[in-house]
């Protein structure tokens, strides 16, 4: 079972920080402009800290739960903190493979590989947190495997 690059935790922690900032900002605005009596002035900071802490914990847990494996005939993914999800994507069913790099991913030096099938949940199958080289390599590998098992069996 392959693990993701540990740096992906940075990415997820960063997104937790963003949501913490949003929550804190909204609460801060409420406290400053409406100043309801039941909200002490420190609530925004406390809420932001709690959200950030929880988000960071989940990020680490998510990293630990993630794993993928290129098997003989299929791609196997395992992930999920609260709901564990295991996905099997047979190579015959792969329609196309993308690797993508978002702006924050680029800063950290990571990339994702996305596998598309004709299934109704096809685009769900994405492997985040790969190094750029790894993502390209995984994409090429899956492409080769998909072509090898190719037929007219995609749909």
């Amino acid at each position: 079972m392959n693990r993701l690059d540990p740096r992906v935790q940075l990415l997820w922690v960063a997104s937790a920080a963003v949501s913490a900032l949003v929550v804190g900002g909204v609460l801060f605005a409420v406290v400053t402009f409406l100043s309801p009596p039941f909200l002490p002035s420190w609530t925004p900071y406390a809420a932001a800290a709690v959200v950030f802490l929880l988000g960071a914990l989940v990020a680490v847990a998510r990293y630990r739960s993630w794993g993928y494996e290129v098997r003989e005939d299929s791609l196997y993914l395992e992930r999920g903190v609260f709901t564990r999800v295991r996905t099997v994507v047979p190579f015959v069913r792969i329609q196309h493979v993308d690797s993508s790099r978002g702006p924050i991913e680029r800063v950290i030096g990571l990339a994702s590989t996305v596998v598309y099938t004709a299934g109704s949940r096809g685009a769900d199958v994405a492997v985040p947190g790969l190094t750029a080289d790894n993502a390209d390599e995984l994409r090429e590998r899956l492409k080769r495997l998909a072509i090898r098992s190719e037929g007219d069996d995609a749909v």
Partner: peptide
């Protein structure tokens, strides 16, 4: 079969249960 997805929520895991979804094309 397009993909096979096995999900287990916290509560399902507590009871040792799982759900297996069989995804096909065009069942949206």
């Amino acid at each position: 079969i397009q993909t096979v997805i096995d999900t287990r929520t916290v509560f399902q895991r507590r009871l040792g249960l799982a759900s297996v979804v069989v995804d096909t094309a065009g069942s949206l």
